[in-house]
């Protein structure tokens, strides 16, 4: 193959998707930043540079509370998901045998049916007349109040929405992990806990971190689940942001909230990737 030909091909294969992403992914994010430094008055954009939106976000207690609530929710949901997803993924990889593919594809069905439809389904379970409370009332018991229109309902919804994603990520990590390493460690006399904490966990840490992030980031900026299930004290940051773009028409403030969410997502990404020592995770670069 001649050299200029190969260079031209390389250009096509890498530059087309790169251009696509720069135009339709990076540029919109830049526009979001620009908008966040403008103002909105009477449902119109005023193109005056100002940091007023950020001052509002940093000083008004409602926004601070929404944000802290979102952050706490995102941390709790992601930690819980990682703790639950590990044994599931490990079981599939270790004992799944020839049913591995079925197990993992069964996770995709609830994932692919979409957020709105899944929230509708969950409402059928958790709502005042849903399956759980309906069954309890038929049995003569009192309905569980904490799963109706509360932060716990939102928590359950997030777990329901992102469990397939977290399990799949950790599953893929474990699938590429050589289980013989664990056997070798235990043959050399390491106890069960030690095999896990010194071999299995560190070697799958980067996959686990990605699983954590893939539930943390959407939870941090979620708007549908809290709006539908969160009740009066369940407003989260993303929901408030969506309202700025909807009912209130204060787009610039909403854009500033979007920037805050993007920044915190990036911060989470950076903090977690600093925590991952690539060498220790067995990453040896992209071998070809």
């Amino acid at each position: 193959m001649s050299e200029p030909n190969a260079a031209a091909r390389k250009r096509v294969f890498l530059y087309i998707p790169t251009t696509f992403l720069v135009l339709f992914f990076v540029l919109p994010l830049v526009a979001l930043v620009v908008l966040s430094f403008w103002q909105t008055a009477n449902y119109k954009i005023v193109r005056d540079w100002t940091t007023l939106n950020y001052v509002t976000l940093a000083t008004e207690s409602a926004y601070i509370i929404f944000f802290l609530r979102s952050l706490l929710m995102a941390i709790l949901v992601s930690v819980f998901l990682v703790v639950v997803a590990w044994p599931i993924a490990f079981f599939i990889v270790r004992f799944g045998g020839r049913y591995k593919l079925i197990f993992s594809l069964l996770l995709a069905v609830p994932f692919l049916s979409g957020e709105v439809l899944r929230l509708i389904a969950l409402q059928g379970m958790l709502g005042p007349t849903g399956l759980i409370n309906g069954a309890l009332m038929r049995l003569g018991a009192a309905p569980l109040r904490f799963i109706m229109y509360s932060n716990s309902a939102t928590f359950i919804a997030f777990v329901y929405l992102y469990l397939p994603m977290t399990v799949t990520t950790i599953y893929l990590s474990l699938l590429n992990f050589d289980l013989r390493l664990a056997s070798a460690a235990s043959a050399c006399g390491a106890g069960r806990l030690r095999v896990f904490s010194e071999v299995i966990w560190p070697l799958n840490l980067s996959g686990t971190m990605i699983g954590f992030l893939l539930s943390f980031i959407p939870t941090l900026s979620a708007s549908l689940a809290p709006r539908f299930l969160g009740g009066p004290n369940g407003t989260l940051y993303g929901m408030s942001m969506a309202q700025q773009f909807g009912e209130s028409g204060t787009w610039a403030l909403g854009a500033a909230m979007g920037v805050v969410l993007v920044l915190f997502s990036i911060a989470a990404l950076v903090i977690l990737s600093l925590g991952v020592n690539l060498r220790r995770t067995g990453f040896t670069g992209m071998e070809r």
Partner: peptide
């Protein structure tokens, strides 16, 4: 690593 709602809102901003 950018949530759907942020993709939607930022594209709309643009």
């Amino acid at each position: 690593f950018v949530s759907e709602i942020l993709l939607g809102i930022s594209s709309m901003s643009l």
